[in-house]
Design a protein around this nucleic acid. Structure first.
Lengths: 118, 118
DNA sequence: CCGATCGTGTACTATGTAGTACATAGTATG
DNA sequence: CATACTATGTACTACATAGTACACGATCGG
């Protein structure tokens, strides 16, 4: 899997660092609440991605979509999981129904729902 | 949480056993590939629910919906998770949009999609 | 009544998860 | 050029996950 998560984080962090020196491994690590050595290892793929909470904190720090970062880490937000767990037939059915639809179709669905034809 | 998973499984298995003696702890355990003592402990909530694979096998054995049994175990099917992970913005957005809709509305959505207005 | 089958208790294990703590070596800047 | 910050390597830890192995006493059916 060539560690897509770590490289992505490193890339984003270094881009930010170019214009803001506080985006060092040390300082970012401190802000998200882990040891610098740990973040370093995560970014180099020496260890698997951290816990959901740390990933969400990292997403916030990097200005990224938490769901995307979690996806790169091979995870799904626990609050989304809870939605499914509460009504499994319903949501499992829905997701299986639309899982192969192209992006634009799913997007249309989302908009349709949001814009109150429901 | 008073172990909803274990009690549910025990209930289903015992109901089946009433009319089919092969639904003993031992025999079901063997069919799903675990030790009898382990299934016994699972059913009594002495240990947490087993892995996804064993739960799915158990659902099949008991004639239950795997998604429901997984939900009772506090899990979400890994293939559903994969759908979300592949297009996180899209699916996270959709789920968050409809998460509070009443059952009938979600159901209408599912049907609408399935019956090809999309 | 006895052998087969049943459920369960006890003890143990292997692997994964999610990190910390500290030392060391490189880099940059004032 | 020194000192302060940087990244990284090494070693360790605590807890969770997902079970197995085996023995024991109860029970049921022919």
């Amino acid at each position: 899997m060539t560690d897509v998560f770590g490289s992505y984080v490193r890339g984003r962090r270094e881009r930010l660092r170019a214009s803001d020196r506080t985006f060092s491994v040390r300082q970012v690590a401190q802000r998200i609440g882990v040891e610098p050595s740990f973040l370093s290892k995560v970014e180099r793929g020496e260890v698997p991605p951290p816990s959901e909470a740390k990933i969400v904190a990292l997403a916030k720090e990097l200005g990224e979509d938490p769901d995307v970062l979690l996806a790169l880490a091979g995870k799904v937000s626990s609050d989304l999981q809870e939605v499914i767990r509460k009504r499994p037939e319903l949501f499992a059915g829905l997701i299986r129904e639309i899982k192969d639809m192209p992006d634009h179709a799913v997007l249309r669905l989302v908009r349709e729902v949001r814009d109150g034809n429901w």
